[in-house]
Design a protein around this nucleic acid. Structure first.
Length: 566
RNA sequence: UGGGGGAUCGUCCAAUGGCAGGACUACGGACUCUGACUCCGUCAAUCCAGGUUCAAAUCCUGGUCCCUCAGCCA
């Protein structure tokens, strides 16, 4: 269970729920539900809804059901049920024995439909899809009554029974609620509530060939389950009158209250199923769990912890206005979590060789390093030191700008947990002029990283011993899009045109401290001065390690350096 | 040109007629064996115009802008 649940959060939905408890509505009980359709993978936007529904339930001593809204067999699949359940569990929520499927209620829903027909509030319409659209009218013009609108109850019943029996083809008939074809709310213009679909259903197989529509099944499923607060996103606001109409017309045991909130939008990514699917199918990314995707499985593979996602959803808040949350908030959430929980390691991503000229050839020693400078309980480890080392390319500059205080000719710096070293000379590639080797001297008196004479150095750098380090592949991820709201401008470029070509950089010549050789999949570390990294759950093998960069450390030097470039 | 919603620091969320507050970002500084973390500080907002009131982000009137609805999808 999430440990961050005790704070007294408040938002307009929690306020409503709290008021209902105070006035003893629903006998003071609270029951919510998370109702995914099993037709795709969960993403961070779903996580917001999950945190809201499960969060409110636990805070208010109520319950939250998991209900698969599986009323459209042509789009749904058991595979999605499996992944959705596993993602919710991983996020840290437990529906206990409250796992439901709308398809569990198909028989009851059918009976409700019959009840509606008997009350002359529903009829079988035999107009084709095009005609129905034609008769519906437009946003500004009222619709026209269907010629089948006044069929007798007996005829409707007969037709509906035969629809269920499979006597008709798809599209021949549809059951419609009889409401008001001139309603300014399009949803109230005699909406279809049952259609014929001769398709295999992942749960009910071929038992049914008619399936209820969302508007009909959702409110009734909520009612059957005794849901008190039915929380959904803004686009269903227009459907609320229909939600209420159906429950009012029918004899149901309770009437849940639908409350709508604004879905989550995150900058520099996309959230719609359509767009996500296109990225996957066009191989822009490698599957639904690609670490660049905002899917739960992708974020997990990237190294996001469930706690960080929960905290993020909390920080984002809940309201009704459309918003675009800054990716920086997500990054803050994961850094905040990982900072306290991950052990530190030294790894060099872009190696530059260093020779310590006055360190005896063939000699090596073990140095003690803190696993977490802020948390002594995490202990220490030994790391090998020798004459030849690797440091980060970025940590050396032959001709440095003013504020650069890492290694540079003639300057002394500290190697983390090791010695002070001083750059004496460089060796360059004759053709390119690139520095390929840096020669230094070390001060044996500074073992461990401090000097007896108290002299200071400006920089501390990470390093690995060349001979002892293990090689690894490291995947650096960046935002998938180079615009804030890809495809967000109707007159602007398609979202596929805004893809960041540098969203993935694969580094194959990385050198890690030797202890990392047997790290297990999904284990996480901070590579000091670089960022947080996790062992890839799919591609990493002992002997050929693959690390994913979850997020970099904040880097104020990079900011200065970037400004200089501009 | 119909209906339903929404407009508060750059971003997200508060303030339920009574001092516009918090978080993220940005920027400064302190600290530092991670240019990280931490700490301190700075910049920064009530869509517009009227009205009611001792007092308005909040109530009223009139505008403006944004989102959303014409699936036998959810």
């Amino acid at each position: 269970m999430p440990s961050d649940e005790n704070s007294t959060r408040s938002d307009f939905i929690r306020n409503i729920v709290e008021d209902d408890i105070k006035t003893n509505k629903n006998n003071g009980l609270v029951s919510t539900r998370f109702p995914p359709e099993p037709n795709g993978y969960l993403h961070i936007g779903h996580a917001k809804s999950i945190c809201l529904n499960f969060g409110i339930a636990t805070e208010k001593k109520g319950t939250c059901n998991l209900r698969f809204d599986d009323t459209n067999p042509v789009k749904e699949d058991a595979e999605y049920v499996k992944s959705i359940k596993s993602d919710i569990k991983w996020l840290g929520f437990d529906w206990k024995d409250r796992l439901h499927y709308t398809s569990d209620y198909f028989e009851s829903l059918y009976n409700y439909a019959v009840e509606l027909i008997k009350k002359e509030k529903a009829y079988v319409c035999s107009l084709g899809p095009d005609d129905i659209r034609e008769y519906r009218g437009t946003l500004t013009e009222p619709g026209k009554d269907s010629p089948y609108r006044n069929r007798l109850v007996g005829e409707n019943l007969d037709l509906f029974v035969r629809m269920r029996a499979g006597e008709f083809e798809e599209g021949e008939h549809v059951l419609r609620a009889k409401i008001d074809m001139s309603s300014p709310n399009m949803n109230m213009r005699d909406p279809a509530i049952y259609r014929i679909r001769k398709a295999y259903h992942h749960k009910t197989g071929n038992d049914w060939c008619i399936y209820p529509m969302y508007d009909f099944s959702h409110c009734l499923s909520d009612s059957i389950e005794g849901i008190t607060h039915s929380i959904c996103t803004l686009e269903f606001e227009d459907h609320r009158p229909l939600y209420d109409w159906i429950l009012d017309e029918l004899n149901t045991k309770c009437h849940p209250r639908q409350i709508e909130f604004a879905r989550l939008n995150l900058s520099y990514t996309v959230m719609s199923k359509r767009k996500l699917l296109k990225l996957v199918e066009s191989n822009i990314v490698n599957g639904w769990d690609d670490p660049r995707l905002p899917t739960i499985s992708g974020m997990r593979r990237r190294g996001y912890t469930s706690g960080s996602i929960r905290n993020f959803c909390e920080r984002v808040g809940v309201a009704k206005r459309d918003s675009m949350v800054d990716l920086a908030l997500l990054e803050y959430s994961i850094r905040d979590d990982l900072n306290t929980s991950t052990p530190r390691r030294l790894s060099v991503l872009n190696p530059l060789k260093i020779i310590i000229d006055n360190y005896p050839e063939g000699q090596e020693e073990e140095l003690e390093a803190l696993n977490h400078p802020g948390d002594p309980e995490m202990g220490t480890r030994k790391i090998p030191f020798s004459r030849e080392l690797y440091i980060e390319k970025d940590d050396f500059m032959e001709d440095p700008p003013k504020k650069f205080f890492r290694l540079t000719p003639g300057r002394e710096v500290r190697l983390r947990f090791a010695y002070y070293i001083k750059c004496e000379s460089v060796i360059k590639d004759e053709k390119t002029g690139e520095v390929v080797e840096v020669h230094c001297t070390y001060d044996p008196e500074t073992k461990g990283g401090s000097s007896p004479d108290g002299r200071k150095v400006k920089a501390t750098m990470h390093w690995v011993s060349a001979a002892h380090s293990v090689k690894a592949e490291v995947r650096l991820y960046d935002r998938l899009f180079n615009v804030e709201n890809p495809g967000g401008d109707k007159n602007g470029p398609d979202f596929m045109e805004s893809i960041n070509p540098e969203s993935l950089k694969v580094l194959t010549d990385c050198h890690l401290e030797p202890g990392l050789a047997d790290s297990s999949p999904e284990s996480m570390y901070q590579f000091e001065r670089l960022g947080y990294f996790c062992v890839d759950s799919k591609d990493s093998m002992p002997g050929s390690l693959v690390f994913n960069r979850t997020v970099s450390l904040r880097d104020s030097w990079a900011k200065v350096a970037n400004k200089r470039k501009k």
